[in-house]
Amino acid sequence: MTDKNMLLAVFSDLDPAAHAVEKLRELGLGDEHLNVISGIPITEAMMGRPHQWTNVPRLALGGALGGFLLGAYLAFVTPTTYPLNVGGQPVIPGPPSVVVLFELTMLGMLISTFVGVFLDSRFPSYTPKEYVPEISDGRIAILIECDPAQEVAIESAMTALGAESVKHAEAQTL
């Protein structure tokens, strides 16, 4: 899709933006051609957008499993590489193993969650992106990918719905 245009419609309020999404869909733009950029977390439902896929839960679960396995290795395997009697306790201590398992499971889960955010969001990424600083002032922007032919129609529709501005989105250094 070399000849697609990127438009950025900026709204100051939630409701017009939601209507705009609806309108754009009516104009034949699929959800995959739209993206909503906002300064506060707006749920997909508010905007009438499809549910966003996120891998973070799976990664978290995987991390938890990894952490658990690492914990199990520390708790159950490492004592046997050089078995030592300490205070008559078994080589592989019972309750203390629970502590180790718990801590490492949590650590694994939390680290992978954190890393998951990075992976899913492609952080860090310092390449130029379509963005306007007003977004972090509370504006809601809709990033529209459309055929050049549709551009005028979309622009007028957006303006009609109360967009503060509709312009060609140019990738800029953030």
Partner: peptide, 16 residues
């Protein structure tokens, strides 16, 4: 980190 506030970014962040 290049955060813009896209739906995806917010979703991942909110879950996390």
């Amino acid at each position: 980190l290049g955060f813009r506030g896209t739906e995806g970014e917010w979703t991942h962040l909110r879950f996390a």
